[in-house]
């Protein structure tokens, strides 16, 4: 911030601090609050990460190609959670459901039947990396 120049001809008591150099001081002078998107979207900064979406299997869950998702590792996975999963060398986003002893990763794209649920077996290298909390998309 560059300190503003104060015109030298004014007597000291007439100086105004702020954008207004003379005249009525702004009643909002002391209000410095701003809306902070990070505060809204990131509950736990230590455990929050961002991923970019590539693909269309989750369009019905409002996740489109190129969107950025906010992922929180601090939340415990639960039945039906929306999660970033690491499976066999790559990341994917799916709804995770527990069916008996099986884990199912469900897509969300009604219009394309070629997206089938993935059934996780012990042969897969699998982990729930974090839970999706928000989707950031350009309109």
């Amino acid at each position: 911030m560059i300190p503003y120049e104060i015109e030298e001809t004014l007597p000291a008591e007439n100086w105004m601090v702020g954008d207004v150099k003379a005249g009525f001081p702004s009643p909002a002078e002391d209000v410095h609050e701003k809306l902070d998107l990070i505060k809204l979207l990131v509950r736990n900064p230590a455990s929050t990460f961002f991923f970019r979406i590539d693909g269309v299997s989750m369009v019905d869950a409002a996740m489109d190609e190129g969107d950025i998702i906010i992922v929180d590792r601090s939340m415990e996975p639960f039945n039906g959670c929306m999660a970033v999963c690491y499976i066999d060398g790559g990341y994917t986003v799916k709804r995770v459901e527990i069916h008996g002893k099986e884990l199912h990763l469900l897509p969300a794209n009604e219009s394309n039947v070629s997206y089938k649920p993935i059934i996780v077996t012990p042969d897969n290298q699998f982990m729930v990396w974090g839970l999706v909390t928000y989707v950031i998309k350009k309109v």
Binding site: F50, Y91, T92, V93
Partner: peptide
């Protein structure tokens, strides 16, 4: 730079 550059954040293929 997975966590410090927007152009480097990881991609989830879905």
């Amino acid at each position: 730079h997975y966590t410090t550059l927007w152009s480097d954040i990881p991609t989830a293929s879905i």
